[in-house]
Write a protein that binds this DNA or RNA. Structure first.
Lengths: 252, 252
DNA sequence: TCGCCGCTTTGATCCAGATCATCTGAGCGG
DNA sequence: CCGCTCAGATGATCTGGATCAAAGCGGCGA
């Protein structure tokens, strides 16, 4: 069953209520900063509320959109993990990104009004869906929101550029583990322990490494005391050395 | 002599005149579309004029900005070619992009207010410099300009993501030649003949290939009748096959 | 005109990581 | 409790492109 998932007809209307977590959804999404920048102006916040729709939950494996789908909304991850990817002519999957809690999907689709990639839920996923045309209009009256959108877009350029460097398997893997850890930490989870929702194959396709190489590097990192790994549960044991390894990729 | 080159004190004030090419600079830059979208509203165009400064010419080799420089302006190339790059810890240069006539530099710096890379002029370069804060403010009153900025940012995400795939040397090289040809063609130059202003080493650093590999692939492309190459002058002989090769990278 | 210098080409060798082929082991349905 | 399935691990081999090492070959200054 294939349907456009970021399109309106999957959305439940989002009540504008001031109490309960309907009002705090925003604290977990990337536009919280923008709201704050506007000094929590009540009417602006209400307008932002008007154009958001909570969609999901989608279970693992559900496609959220497909390459070529018309673009009309971006989405922030409210829970779960999303993978975006392309399938090349020879059937290989190129993973473009993993999106964790609070991260924004779809900014690469603005360019020509169609999604340039596919997205699937890796586990149970809920989203905040924002009509992009409405958001752009609102950004016209909320400079903070406009600035936040510019920043998010610019950030994605940098993320993509970082993946484009020619780095060794070790450097890529170290950067990947650190990046996940930091992003979880930023949302209030443990900075050293996390459970991945993607397979070794997904990680390989993201890092441009064979799954076997991912497996071997992870083993070596364990042998060298950098990580403790049990299936998809990772624990960082030697942050310093991991940062050292990842330095060429992450650059700070 | 190292100075911040996208900073105001290098700029000559740009007279707001309606005649001559002072007024037509915009037709060659990426914001022409935005102007047009606003229906050439006179006062808006004048405002855009107010915040633009023509800077340069800079001669080949001149640094335009450096990694870590504070960001306050984006720039459109008015003439010449700009290379952006990073130097990694081991001294290797990673070229992030080449910017031709009309293309916009600096969008990756919005994210955290500093340039994440260096830029140099590859030949004689002139720029249109736009104060970004002023442009963002103006975009608030010119929805077409805002939309154009969103599109440009989104486009850069896609460009960077395309480079991040794992492609063969042939695919990368074919995509590079085609991309340059298209961009020149878009600005009204020959779609099949052009002169590059970057060295084989630069191309290699951009494509993540050794300069020797670039040289070998170019030779083979010539032997196979895809290209005619003389030093830095390229002519496309077999567009079809080149497109075929580049397909996995360019995807259309 | 000569000779130097930096870019480019070409050839020989090497190696990180891909690929191919098994093997292990957890989860799960019956 | 058994056997199936599929993710992951491990070993053996292969290879595309890097690296190392020499030439060519303009262009330019003296």
């Amino acid at each position: 069953m294939s349907r456009p998932f970021l399109s309106p007809f999957h959305a439940k209307p989002s009540p504008i209520t001031d109490d309960g977590d309907e009002f705090t959804f925003c604290s977990s999404c990337a536009f919280a900063g923008a709201c704050r920048a506007e000094g929590y102006d009540k009417s602006a916040l209400e307008e932002l509320h008007c154009l958001v729709e909570h969609v999901g939950p989608y279970h693992a494996g559900t496609p959220l959109f497909r390459e070529g789908d018309p673009f009309n909304a971006i989405a922030a991850v409210r829970s779960g993990t999303v993978k975006t990817f392309r399938i090349d002519a020879s059937g290989r999957e190129q993973v473009l990104g993993f999106f964790l809690l609070g991260e924004v999907i779809g900014l690469d689709a603005i360019h020509n009004g169609r999604f340039p990639c596919n997205a699937v839920a890796l586990d149970t996923v809920s989203l905040c869906r924002f009509s992009f045309p409405m958001m752009a209009t609102l950004a016209t009256r909320m400079p903070g929101l406009q600035a936040q959108l510019f920043r998010l877009l610019s950030q994605d350029i940098n993320k993509a550029a970082a993946m484009a460097g020619d780095f060794s398997a070790d450097e890529r893997m170290a950067a990947f583990v650190l990046s996940i850890a930091r992003r979880f930490a930023y949302r209030g989870f443990s900075p050293t322990r996390f459970v991945l929702s993607m397979s070794r194959t997904d990680i390989g396709n993201y890092l441009r490494l064979a799954a076997e190489t991912v497996s071997r590097v992870v083993r070596r990192f364990q042998d060298e005391g950098l990580l403790r790994v049990d299936r998809r549960e990772f624990e960082i044991l030697d942050l310093r050395r991991l940062q050292q390894l990842a330095l060429p990729v992450l650059r700070e």
